[in-house]
Amino acid sequence: MDTLKFIVKRIIYLLILLLGVATIVFILTRLVPTDPVAANLSQRNLSDPEIVAAFRQKWGLDKPIWEQFIIYLKGLLRLDFGTSIRTSKPVLDELKRCFPATFELSLFAIIIATVFGILFGIISALKRNSWLDQLVRAISVAGVSVPTFWLALLLLYFFYYKLGIAPGTGRISKSFDAPAAVTGLYVIDSLLEGDPAKAWDCLSHLILPGCVLAAFTMGLITRTARSNLLEVISTDYIRTARAKGMANIRLILHHALGNALIPVLTVVGLGFGNLLGGTVLVETIFSWPGVGQFAYESVTKLDSPGIIGVAILIALNYGIINTIVDILYGVIDPRVRSGV
């Protein structure tokens, strides 16, 4: 019952947050001294006042800002995110089209980041100040510091171009047809089609972009896991368990890790939310048709419904993930659930 109350409360907060995000982004897109007319009409049509006026009228840009905002809010209440100026299609349809690609990639990246981040964190904490610890720390610092676009090009250059052991860009090889959209996640949809070869091909296309995206979050998780494990390891109950002769691995997995995981979970949640917002550079380099590409195109064409749609999607992602993370806190540590 408490959990239900908690979720209802979170949904109300989320709705207020989304309204706030929509308002702020709407105002910002109108305040920036740029003109969507120039971004969307040809040089020739720019000189035709009739065409310019028709464009402004079509997209409601001829109305006062407050009126534009009320129209937008009314639409939003009906879950109508408006129509993209760039593609003339409903923004909601556009987001539905590109979100699964980003979700699949982000999910893959966050799984890699979490698994390896925690693993490296454990190794680093167990072998504190050893050469292994130094190596893991160096990897995590590199993961956080290396520019994403550079790492993307580097991995593509070596593993695809030079060694030829990884697939190149896109979500699927040209020797396969895209799977029929059920979930929009190619790996799962291929399996639903009963084609494991296609599923493996789609999975292999996730490896390079997934690793690039995972690098940053993995670095953060490693560092967080290490420092929290070290803190937990130095507590009395762990010292006692160790004095009783409990094996190190068992000690970490059964007693220390659970307590050290809560901050890690926060980092995982934030990292996943960040990835779901779409990463323009990685999506561009790997020709990945996701939210990042849509956001970039929307910004270059000053497509305000598209920009606001992406902003709401990002806020929604964070809201949902944070709610899930809060629930998971209680699962990992019963003291959180009971409010101790």
């Binding site: 171009y161 860009t169 380099i285």
Partner: peptide, 20 residues
Amino acid sequence: YIIQEMDDANTQMMSLTQDD
């Protein structure tokens, strides 16, 4: 014909040499 969206010139160059 398959016309694949590839925004990056480096990606196009690498894909061409790999015959993708």
